[in-house]
Design a protein around this nucleic acid. Structure first.
Ligand SMILES: NC(=O)c1ccc[n+]([C@@H]2O[C@H](COP(=O)([O-])OP(=O)(O)OC[C@H]3O[C@@H](n4cnc5c(N)ncnc54)[C@H](O)[C@@H]3O)[C@@H](O)[C@H]2O)c1
Ligand SMILES: NC(=O)c1ccc[n+]([C@@H]2O[C@H](COP(=O)([O-])OP(=O)(O)OC[C@H]3O[C@@H](n4cnc5c(N)ncnc54)[C@H](O)[C@@H]3O)[C@@H](O)[C@H]2O)c1
Lengths: 217, 217
DNA sequence: GAAGCATTGTGAAATGTACCACAAAATCTT
DNA sequence: AAGATTTTGTGGTACATTTCACAATGCTTC
């Protein structure tokens, strides 16, 4: 039986971690959590890599950036590795998230139950349409965007998802940033301009489809 | 006034194009189309790069993989470049797309008007829940998944979006592949296993949020 | 407890990607 | 029409990422 490692320290404060490595950690975590639900206790870089379509060497090298989490001859203790990755990604806590735009996408996000065990919780949703403001989405009353900056500032929210039309996305983003938001997941099909110290990620299904179309005859 | 280049040929049949370059073309295209809507006729790698947060050299190098689309001293004719990128990505046509899973995400995708001018068109939507089958989503009647393989095969559909729960996604994927689908956009938070010659892209907002959380204090 | 097997962590090598810098070419200015 | 200005396309270089390959280590079996 694999013992829980003691006194393991996360490195990473010295080194500069490549962004591409950071980007793979959530994928490792997602698969490890699935294995944990299958009550698998231990895995190897080889097995994990097969599930992910990533080489075993890649996984070992990536994890070695942050510490020594495995055991030679045995592999990785899954619950232990899950906790280490959660620490590294700062999701060994729950981040409150605001959603702006209570249309099809915003409502789907507000109702989605899948964020809970992955470090995030939607806590408010905004819209600027009088017909939508005041209606219920999941457990939330849709709030007026007019009060967005104050509400987000007061709640200390650092993470937001933007699901407004493209021509509104930059303006909404500017408001979010002035309210102290540091991480924005943008569903609008437009590149946002943000100051240093604010992170943006994009979700645009057409971009993914177009990318795949290149490889279609 | 910039003349429309004549006799320009796409290269690319010889060379192996890096996937990372292919992945940037949809972003270039999205921004070029926005500029076109602003009735801008001509741009430079510098201006395009500023809008995208990408270096001018990168853009020039990427485009040069496929041909010579610009004019020294002037830059790129936007409508011309848009057409070239649409050709390269094989979206100088419309791809019919099937959606599987008529829940919040699937319905949002079926109702979304933003695919039309980007090379894709949702033409059918499936579910396996008797309460959902037969209901209307946008203009579509939700079809029973039991008939999925036959319907997709008959329609010759090559592209699908999967928005079923994670534990159903691999099974749905296998059916899609047996029906001849070659490109799958998967919204379920799970890595899919597919044979050679089938492409998968993933959309998982939690992955993006987790990635950004790394950079939050 | 020794032999055999599995698997990590990691330098070194190989491969891939981004950036620099400049000649060439087109346009603009006077 | 000559010189100044702009901007492309690209060879070369610097930097980044992935893969290789193996010593070290721990587990399993006899
Ligand atoms: N529906 C999809 O499947 C899908 C797919 C890809 C991308 N998108 C993008 O996601 C975004 C939202 O899509 P949707 O389908 O939910 O659109 P939608 O029209 O259903 O919803 C947009 C909502 O934003 C609100 N809004 C507009 N301006 C606002 C502002 N300034 N402040 C606050 N709220 C504002 C509107 O009142 C509306 O309720 C769009 O940018 C769209 O292009 C949607
Ligand atoms: N809602 C969101 O914002 C969101 C965000 C991220 C990821 N996702 C993921 O997207 C997927 C869909 O999410 P959702 O919120 O729309 O869920 P949902 O429960 O609203 O919809 C899922 C639909 O799939 C149908 N379904 C189940 N098994 C099926 C099968 N074998 N064949 C055909 N249809 C089947 C169900 O009947 C249901 O209608 C899930 O995997 C979810 O984790 C959703």
């Amino acid at each position: 039986m694999l013992q829980l490692q003691k006194g393991v320290q996360l490195l990473m404060d010295n080194k500069q971690i490549p962004d591409i490595v950071v980007g793979r950690l959530p994928l490792y975590l997602r698969t490890l959590q699935k294995m944990a639900r299958e009550t698998i206790q231990v895995t190897s870089s080889l097995e994990l890599g097969e599930r992910l379509g990533i080489s075993a060497a890649q996984i070992r090298k990536d994890l070695s950036q942050f510490g020594e989490f495995g055991k030679q001859g045995t592999g990785y203790n899954i619950p232990f590795l899950i906790e280490r990755i959660r620490e590294i990604l700062h999701i060994d806590r729950v981040w409150d998230v605001a959603v702006v735009g209570a249309g099809d996408v915003g409502r789907a996000l507000a109702r989605y139950q899948g964020f809970a065990d992955r470090g995030f919780r939607v806590v408010m949703i905004f819209d600027n349409n009088p017909d939508v403001i005041g209606t219920l989405v999941a457990d939330f009353t849709v709030q007026n965007t007019a009060g967005l900056v104050e509400a987000i500032q007061n709640a200390g929210i650092k993470v937001a998802m933007v699901s407004v039309p493209a021509d509104q996305a930059q303006s909404v983003t500017d408001q979010l940033i002035s309210a102290g938001v540091k991480a924005i997941l943008n569903y609008a099909p437009i590149s946002l301009s943000v100051p240093e110290g604010v992170w943006v990620q994009y979700i645009d299904p057409a971009v993914h489809l177009q990318r795949m179309a290149f490889y279609l005859a």
